[in-house]
Simulated assay, not measured.
Amino acid sequence: MFKIIIADDKKIIRESICEVIDWGSLGVEMSGVCKNGTEAYNLAMKIRPDIILTDIRMPGMTGLELIKKLFEKGISARCILLSAYGEFEYAREAMKYNVKHYLLKPCNEEQIMSAVSEVCSDILKDRSKGLDIESEEQRSYSDVIEKIMVLVEENMGNSEMSLKWIAENFMFMNVDYLSRRFQQETGQRFSAYLNGIRMSRAKEILIKYGGDDIFAIAEQVGYGNNPQYFSQSFKKSTGMSPREFAKRVY
């Protein structure tokens, strides 16, 4: 399972996130809850988590300072930033440290789970390529699962892509068997993995090119000619529309 720690100076927020989310269903283990950046930094240096969910503004060491310090120490944890309106200059600064995941407060259970699922998908993708050398829990995947991950990358823009489509057109294997095996090896359902990869790719495009052509972005990440559904899915994941996200980070 992936290890996650939470950092927020508001007790009610950190306790709510910790208790409300069904972490096990995401293949994630809650490994620590911290009230400031200093606590989170010390814990991260000790246990080397896979994921850190942190508020930007905290007394003492801020979330941005936490991310920067861990980056400089070579800690490869993926970070999800919690930010309020007016704090996106901090989020822009965090891009220097490869942070691509943001949640706008107030956010709900579904948005947090979606963001964590995206991060898990990113980690799985990197591990399949042998890039995540820092993790103590690094896993190698079977040829079958690695092939599925490669096919997802190669066919990102195909709106018909599903595990059934992959099974019938490339793997020539039983889709139920592939589904069970994918979840056993990765800890995620394929649908969650695919959605996480698509949302992550959409954010990368929005950060790099802005949100002027949502139709083109929707096509690139597999939503075909349905930019409205893409926008709905993106907002469900982040709490912001693609254009709102782009205005704050581009």
Rank of each mutant, 00 (worst) to 15 (best):
K69W: 09
A202T: 03
V99E: 01
E109I: 12
S142K: 14
K235G: 01
Y97T: 08
Y193N: 11
Q183R: 04
L151M: 12
E160D: 07
G37H: 14
R181P: 06
V28H: 00
G24R: 08
S179E: 07
R189I: 11
F245C: 01
I148L: 15
A246I: 08
G239Q: 04
G86N: 04
S179Y: 02
V175Y: 02
M30A: 07
A202M: 03
M1I: 01
L81Y: 03
K35F: 08
D176W: 06
V175C: 10
V119W: 04
H101Y: 12
E87W: 04
M45H: 07
I205K: 09
A44Q: 13
E93I: 13
D122V: 03
V119Q: 11
A218P: 01
S179R: 05
K129C: 12
E29N: 03
N174L: 08
L82P: 02
G24Q: 15
N174Y: 07
K96I: 14
E244Q: 02
D122L: 00
M149C: 01
E185L: 15
R181G: 12
A40C: 14
E19Q: 14
L163Y: 05
M173P: 04
L103V: 05
E72D: 07
I21E: 06
L206Q: 09
L82N: 00
C79L: 00
M58E: 05
R201C: 07
R127W: 12
L53N: 02
I112K: 06
E87M: 02
S121V: 00
Q188W: 01
I217C: 03
R201S: 13
M240E: 00
G86F: 05
Y209L: 13
I21N: 10
S191Q: 12
Y90C: 10
N36A: 06
N98C: 05
D9Y: 08
K236D: 01
L26N: 06
D143E: 09
E72Q: 09
V175D: 11
L66N: 08
A44I: 15
G32L: 10
F234D: 12
E219V: 09
M95C: 09
S191R: 05
P106R: 07
L124M: 11
G210V: 02
N195A: 00
E134I: 06
F182M: 00
A7E: 05
Y250E: 11
R189M: 08
F215H: 10
G37V: 15
F190T: 01
M113G: 10
S25Y: 03
R92P: 15
V99S: 06
N98T: 09
M156V: 13
Q184G: 12
I123Y: 02
A40F: 14
L43W: 02
Q138E: 14
C34M: 04
I214Y: 13
V33P: 00
Q228E: 14
F230E: 00
G32C: 04
Y229P: 08
V99P: 02
A192L: 09
D50M: 03
F182E: 03
T238D: 14
N195D: 06
S233A: 15
M95Q: 13
S31V: 04
C107R: 03
L151H: 10
R189A: 04
S231I: 13
